[in-house]
Every structure is written in C-alpha cells, then in structure tokens.
C-alpha cells in the first residue's frame, strides 16, 4: 500500500519536473478545440450542440500522446526494470501509475472543458458537481486501459501509432457515456437519462480498473 502511494508520488513528481510537457499537451487540446470550430464553421448553435463530442475528442487525442510520453520516462533509461528489481510490487506499480495518469488526464480535461465554455459560449444546465464527477469518471475510463496499453506497446516500434490503434476501440464505451453525460448537462436532460449514463460510466470504470491491474502484473513479469 505504501508502495502505491510512493509510486503515485514519484510519477506526479516526475511529471511536475517536466511540467512544460503538460502545458504543451493542454495547448494541443486547445488547438484541437479551435480546429473543430473552424471545421464546423461559425455556426455557434451547431458547436454548442456537439460541444461534448468535440471536447472529448480533443481530450482523447491529447491523452494518447500523454500516455505514450509518461511511459517513456520509465523505459528510456531502464527505470522500470530498476523498480521491478527493487522489488516494487507490480500491482502497486500499476495502480500508482494509473492514478497518476488519471490526475494528469483530469487536469487536461478540466483545462479543455474550461476553455470550451469560453470558446463555444456554453451554458451549464445541469449541476457543476455532476459535471466534475463526469470528468473524473470519464478520464478514469481512459487512464486504466491507457496505462496498460502504454506498457503493452512500450518496447514496440511505432508506439505512437500502436497505442491509439489498440486503445481507441477499447475505450468506445466510456467515450460514448462521457460525451452523452456532458451533452445532457449542457443542453438539458428532458428524459432523465443522466443518472443511468453516469452509472454506466462508473460500472465500465470498475470493470476496467480491476481487469487491467491483473493483466499488467502478468505483462511486466515477462
């Protein structure tokens, strides 16, 4: 348990030291939001209607970059092998890394969400607490499988291509749910679907977070 805390602490500390990378990624997400607006045109209503989709697409593509980079820290100088020989428990290692990625992704999503309110002239119709919960649950759906797949593709050539290729089909369900909930919170929820979609999202997270930990442990033993 202590190892989990220290792995998390270590990962966040390393990212803090390389914080210009996070700033770069957040800017990248922002650029994506702008590009979507250009692609759609100046029709603000259309932008507002599909804001959830644009927002999460921006976060999704920035997150694959983030996952690739955050795992490169571990492999470029053999740090991961060193950790396993210490020995650090692989399960603690996985959840430490996954939670660290969750924190970073949430930060990224928060920046993108904030700027989309500003750029797309959005108005929140649901509760702010639920919106925050939605962001955390949504990024959790990316963080756990993302960490596993970053480890899976870590030593492969063309990781930049392989990671999104494998990860995106896997995260279709949470992306569907998180976009849906965001839209419901932004344009209103006349049919009261919100809580059930949040429940769907939470149950995805539960399945992914438990399955990926076991698979990761088996993966790094090799």
């Amino acid at each position: 348990m202590m190892q989990f805390v220290w792995v998390l602490h270590k990962d966040l500390f390393v990212e803090w030291r390389a914080r210009s990378r996070i700033v770069g990624l957040a800017t990248y997400a922002l650029v994506m939001l702008l590009i979507f607006a250009f692609a759609v045109g100046t029709d603000t209503t259309a932008l507002q209607q599909h804001a959830g989709a644009y927002l999460w697409l921006a976060v999704l593509s920035a997150s694959t970059l983030l996952l690739v980079q955050s795992f490169q820290q571990e492999t470029e100088a053999g740090a991961l092998d060193g950790l396993l020989l210490l020995p650090v428990n692989p399960v603690a290692l996985f959840y430490g890394k996954a939670v660290a990625n969750l924190v970073l992704l949430t930060l990224l999503a928060a920046v993108a969400l904030g700027s989309s309110f500003f750029l797309y002239d959005l108005h929140l119709r649901g509760s702010l607490v639920l919106l925050c919960l939605n962001v955390v649950l949504g990024t959790a759906g990316l963080a756990a499988p993302g960490t596993l797949y970053a480890a899976l593709t870590a030593r492969a050539p063309a990781q930049q291509l392989l990671l999104p290729l494998l990860l995106l089909p896997l995260v279709v369900p949470p992306v569907l749910a998180v976009v849906k909930v965001t839209d419901l919170l932004l344009v209103g929820d006349p049919m009261n679907q919100l809580s059930s979609w949040l429940a769907v999202l939470a149950s995805f997270d539960l399945v992914y977070w438990s399955l990926t930990g076991v698979l990761f442990a088996r993966l790094v033993e090799e």
Binding site: W6, K10, F13, Q73, G78, D81, V88
Partner: peptide, 24 residues
C-alpha cells in the same frame, strides 16, 4: 546494469530519494 535505471528529469538526490521511499 548498462542502462542507469534513472529518471532523466530528476536530479541525483531526487532519484535516490525515490529509491529510499520505495524501499521503505
């Protein structure tokens, strides 16, 4: 080992600090 098993973005002292914490 051949690879130094270090975090490139941290200083020497910080790298050792991580090691000590993970060893308890």
């Amino acid at each position: 080992a051949h690879l130094p098993s270090l975090y490139e973005d941290l200083s020497a002292a910080e790298n050792l600090g991580i090691l000590f914490r993970l060893m308890g």
